[in-house]
Design a protein around this nucleic acid. Structure first.
Lengths: 194, 194
DNA sequence: AATGCAAATTGACAGTGTCAATATCTGGAT
DNA sequence: ATCCAGATATTGACACTGTCAATTTGCATT
């Protein structure tokens, strides 16, 4: 069934090699030639599956987004129905993912490394926005206010995770209340509406 | 007066060359060899002033942070005394800077490219945090609440600017109210405290 | 079985960061 | 004024990288 001509399924092998390289050595470390070496093929073999490095990194980023999206939807499926609780669950997932896989999160944040025209990427970006947009709409009456809230939630969440990843946070938890710091940000953002 | 041995002041020449390259070609484009070419010296001359590329990029980032800090303090000097107005002024400066020089803002966000031990960088980071920390303390009574607010403000601001830079914003202005979108985020963050 | 096409290899080129060895200039001592 | 020591710049090299062209290999369909 596989299209495997020589290798079996080189595309998949390159992606898992890339994932490992990404986790261990950072974005810089995920290079076409290193992935090829790790998959046991020659240095130019990947060109048949990814026209250039940009395409490889885009596919890798889409894979990471898919993981994050699945974890988010799984968590939401188990969360209580109250919008506030669901929003907390959503934030928790992203924060945990960034903590567990900082380099994957960094890759997802590097828009300059992506092929913006990739249809798989476009789909993924839409899918990723869906849950948070739904929660925003649920929390706030007007469509306009909802857009603002969603924007604020996205900006604050990604901004916070990157601060955390980059070590610009003294502590991850509030020393007094013991609750994670990102809870406090959510509190502030939702203080306005009941 | 200058320490100019061969070139006059190569370090400065490399930095301005780097700034131009950064603006025109992005971070990828600011390479040791390109800076050397632009300054009219051989490819290995920069090593005397910057031990490696990381050091060059760090110095460049510090320069950008200094520009942003100066513009911020200038704006605050002209702003009205009300904390809310001062906070708006501070956000306006960062948003405008990101819009005018997206690549400089991107460089400032790339903690992975910096030499964390650089004392000039450490100083600059402290100085950059100072105004926003002061405003947070002024806006909110307890030291703890102030820390949370400052964190939220930093995260939301940088997150928003990056969304804007990377083209993940449909519009930069609210089509109805006409006010810039980041105003709405500030509204949300400050809705809790009077 | 033969042919055509997709996949993989090999080899090359230009570009990069970084190092070692060498040459050159400058400022200050004699 | 001279001369020397050390900072500064050059040259050349090495190991990488992405990308391309030419070639070979292997599969599947005719």
């Amino acid at each position: 069934m596989k299209r495997g001509h020589h290798h079996g399924d080189l595309r998949e092998a390159l992606l898992t090699a890339g994932q490992h390289l990404l986790d261990r050595e950072g974005i810089e470390g995920v290079t076409i030639r290193a992935c090829a070496r790790s998959a046991g093929v020659s240095h130019a073999a990947p060109i048949n599956h990814f026209p250039d490095r940009r395409a490889l990194l885009t596919a890798l980023a889409v894979q990471c987004m898919d993981q994050l999206d699945r974890q988010t939807r799984d968590a939401l499926a188990l969360a209580e129905p109250a919008p506030r609780a669901r929003l907390e669950a959503l934030w928790d997932v992203s924060v945990a993912y960034g903590q567990a896989y900082p380099n994957r999160y960094r890759l997802m944040g590097r828009a300059d490394l992506r092929d913006t025209e990739d249809p798989a990427l476009k789909d993924m970006l839409e899918r990723l926005l869906e849950p948070i947009a739904a929660l925003g709409a649920q929390l706030v009456p007007g469509r306009l206010a909802a857009r603002s809230l969603v924007l604020a939630l996205c900006a604050a969440l990604t901004g916070y995770v990157f601060m955390m990843i980059d070590g610009n946070l003294a502590t991850a938890h509030d020393p007094d209340s013991g609750q994670p710091l990102h809870r406090a940000i959510l509190d502030l953002l939702l203080a306005g509406q009941g």
